[in-house]
Nucleic acid binder design. Structure first.
Length: 361
DNA sequence: TAGGCCATCTGGTCCT
DNA sequence: AGGACCAGATGGCCTA
């Protein structure tokens, strides 16, 4: 895989402490999810060894592990009671099986389950709309069908294919945004092949180029040199570790000011349709692309403020509670980063760090 | 006909 | 207690 741990940083700026805590709390409890995600990532061309395949097969059908009880006081007490009980009473009684639900409750439970599944399917449908047809292009090993309305194919993407394509699409967009030199090189040959054969992806690449160009222009030589000299006057220091924005960060706000207009709700580029979706209220986030980031300590955890990579999801994708859509016509939806992060829901609902990472990779 | 995909039912587990 | 979530089981539909 070309994607290393680096992208995790922009997944977890807000959620890193939460994710770490979740990873800690959910330790050893995510086997089924990880087996799912490992099977999802099996579309990667680099995951082809027989050993790995065999392992995946064995994982695919593995049962989920029983979760250890949460560390609530009541749970702790019950665990302690169980332990002491085991010590004193070697023969434990077989646990009484819960009686089956009444007909009424079984019916209502089924109805709820159907509703839940419908919501999931609805979210999948939104995701299908968001994934352009080309990501499933000829070089992809997914089914050769496109998103509805974008091609003549009437076939619907399966759920698993939709997830894979979404991951691939995000990867493509991330690759584009990760290239700061404007060369738009994508380090995944397979993705390059897909992108080069599709209008939508070409458009994305073009927008990426415009974005890079805009950022480059914004840092005009004269201003850049003056700022550079002022920066050079400061003594070299290690990345600051505090909660308030450092002087460097404030300086960087000037950079941002060159590029951004602001209304009450959002920041946007003076040039239309190319604004990074920075939350206007969070000064820590107001760093221009390509600047070095300083770290902060939040609750004893070192948190890396977002570089441009932190913004890459938000640039192209718009997310609400259960949908993920391309923002149109502009690249940026101009709303808050949290709401734009397609993993936001995952990160706030019990996914641990490893799961989120595997999903992203 | 086998295999993939899906919807639904069901029981277990966790959480509020 | 009841709801949410999850995964196994099952059967229907479709395609190669």
């Amino acid at each position: 895989m070309h994607h290393t741990l680096k992208p995790l940083g922009h997944l977890s700026f807000h959620q890193m402490p939460i994710m770490a805590a979740l990873a800690d709390a959910n330790n050893n409890s995510n086997s089924s999810i990880s087996s799912l995600t490992s099977s999802l990532s099996s579309s990667s061309p680099s995951s082809g060894s027989d050993e790995a395949m065999a392992k995946k097969d064995s994982e695919k059908y593995s049962l989920r592990q029983r979760q250890t009880r949460r560390s609530t006081p009541a749970a702790k007490a019950s665990v302690a009671a169980t332990v002491s009980e085991k010590k004193t009473v070697p023969k434990e009684k077989p646990k009484q099986k819960a009686p089956p639900l009444s007909k009424y409750r079984r019916k209502t439970a089924n109805a709820r389950e159907r509703t839940r599944m419908r919501e999931i399917n609805s979210a999948f449908e939104n995701l299908r709309q968001a994934v352009p047809v080309a990501v499933a292009g000829p070089s992809g090993n997914q089914s050769p069908v496109g998103s509805p309305g974008q091609s003549g194919a009437n076939e619907k993407l399966t759920k698993i294919t939709t997830l894979r394509l979404a991951m691939k699409y995000i990867r493509i967009l991330s690759d584009i945004l990760n290239n700061e030199d404007g060369s738009l090189m994508i380090d995944n040959n397979n993705d390059v092949d897909m992108v080069n054969h599709n209008d939508i992806e070409r458009e994305v690449m073009l927008k990426g180029a415009l974005l890079n160009e805009t950022i480059f222009k914004a840092k005009s030589p004269s201003k850049a040199s003056t700022r550079k000299s002022s920066r050079n006057s400061k003594p070299n220091k290690p990345p600051s570790l505090n909660l308030v924005p450092s002087l460097d960060a404030k300086d960087d706000l000037l950079d941002l000011g060159m590029m951004l207009d602001s209304d009450n709700d959002s920041l946007h580029l003076s040039e239309p349709c190319l604004s990074p979706p920075l939350p206007s209220t969070t000064s820590l986030h107001k760093q221009p692309f390509g600047t070095t980031s300083c770290n902060s300590i939040v609750g004893g955890t070192v948190v890396t403020p977002p570089s441009h990579a932190d913004l890459e999801f938000g640039l192209f994708l718009e997310s609400d509670a259960d949908s993920l859509q391309l923002s149109e016509p502009c690249l940026s939806p101009l709303s808050h980063l949290d709401s734009l992060n397609p993993f936001n829901d995952l990160l706030h609902t019990g996914f641990n760090e490893q799961t989120a990472l595997e999903l992203y990779l």
